[in-house]
């Protein structure tokens, strides 16, 4: 694999590396907000990968961009819902530590 021209493998490796950073963050963070940041990195890398693959394998098609639009809408919905849960939770438990949230009664 050479550095130029940039091909499918380059995009795949880049998105894999970004996804792995997100995975690392997801496994190490204890605060709910840190987890959310890691998930955002993972969703973003997946969206870039879909756009890159469709662009390189089926040029002229818009399916990748349309999928990425749905990705972005889903990520926005996820963040809003996560913050809706997190902000009232942080009032009763200021630490925001997800390892302490081990019951369902709030």
């Amino acid at each position: 694999m050479s550095f130029f021209p940039v091909g499918i493998q380059h995009w795949l490796l880049l998105c894999l590396a970004l996804f792995s950073f997100g995975l690392y963050g997801l496994l190490t963070r204890r605060s709910a907000m840190g987890l959310l940041l890691a998930i955002e990195i993972m969703v973003n890398s997946a969206a870039v990968l879909v756009v890159a693959l469709i662009h390189l394998l089926h040029p002229g098609k818009l399916d990748g961009q349309l999928s990425a639009l749905f990705f972005i809408a889903l990520a926005a919905a996820e963040v809003v819902l996560a913050l809706g849960i997190y902000v009232p939770l942080a009032r009763s438990r200021p630490s925001g530590d997800v390892t302490q949230l081990n019951d369902l009664r709030g």
């Binding site: 902000v87 925001g96 530590d97």
Partner: peptide, 24 residues
């Protein structure tokens, strides 16, 4: 993402700043 979600996250962090939350 940058105009909406990042700003929302920054607001949420500033509104719910706990003693342990800042150092993870």
């Amino acid at each position: 993402y940058i105009g909406g979600i990042s700003v929302l996250l920054i607001f949420a962090i500033m509104l719910t700043r706990g003693p342990d939350l800042l150092k993870d």
